[in-house]
């Protein structure tokens, strides 16, 4: 399977995601933000980091870059798009995903391992997880507090467009298990077509037991199958 990782000035998880994709047998290419063309890709990843220093607003400047036009075209023709952390913020800024990512509720950067419940697995990114699986991934962000309007939230819930919610190790989902204040403990969302996933946690950091755990692998193997 062919994957592409978009690299912006200030991206800093580009190497990590490339390492994960290569380890899991993707044929991966790195794509510089000034490029006007995308290589043939089944999956496009927008990695974490601080694109353009997150100046103005996280993801706002990256969303206007050359290559993003190509990403939008690819997305509209059904290519799988995965935005992680800053990548999620960029997808929101382009309008490919709806809603907003606000400052964390405690106004501090948060970096820690959190539990997530796989609330929906009926999509190409999560089918190798069982529904209601509890996995542990790492988060590291300042603006991960997802917010959206009531009708969109209802749509997300009704159409099974929320694959991951923050919880504790027993799967409890409430304010006490919500690290950043996201509405309904949302950690990631899909578009209506379910080919675009934006998520704050980092699956690429969880692919090796020596470093952390292997809970992130399911996401990549889901895409492969």
């Amino acid at each position: 399977m062919n994957s592409s990782v978009i690299v912006f000035p200030g991206s800093n998880c580009d190497r990590d995601i490339a390492t994960a994709l290569t380890k899991l047998q993707f044929k991966n290419k790195m794509v510089w933000h000034k490029d006007n063309e995308l290589p043939k890709s089944d999956l496009i990843v927008i990695p974490g980091g601080f694109s353009y220093g997150d100046y103005l607003r996280s993801g706002a400047i990256a969303a206007k870059s050359n290559i993003l036009n190509e990403v939008i075209k690819a997305a509209n023709s059904g290519c799988l798009i995965l935005g992680i952390c800053n990548g999620f913020q960029i997808l929101i800024e382009t309008g490919l995903l709806k809603g907003a990512l606000l400052r964390n509720k405690d106004l501090k950067f948060i970096s820690k391992d959190v539990y997530l419940k796989v609330t929906n697995n009926n999509n190409k990114f999560c089918k190798n997880y069982k529904k209601n699986n509890i996995i542990r991934l790492n988060i590291a962000h300042n603006e991960g507090n997802y917010f959206t309007q009531k009708d969109h939230l209802k749509e997300l819930e009704d159409k099974e467009l929320i694959p991951f919610k923050y919880c504790n190790k027993n799967g409890l989902i409430n304010d006490s298990t919500n690290p950043n204040g996201s509405i309904n403990n949302i950690a990631g969302i899909l578009n209506n077509g379910k080919n675009i996933l934006g998520m704050m946690p980092h699956p690429e950091r969880m692919i090796d037991n020596l470093i952390s755990n292997t809970d992130g692998i399911g996401l990549f193997t889901s895409i492969l199958n």
């Binding site: 990590d16 974490g48 970096s111 590291a140």
Partner: peptide, 28 residues
């Protein structure tokens, strides 16, 4: 010191075997 160390990204670059709070951190 979690209040302190959770404000630092300890995992980026994907090679952190042991993070803060141990006798020494380990980087692969």
């Amino acid at each position: 010191k979690k209040w302190v160390t959770e404000q630092y990204d300890q995992m980026v670059m994907g090679d952190t075997i042991e993070r803060s709070g141990t006798d020494a951190a380990i980087i692969k």
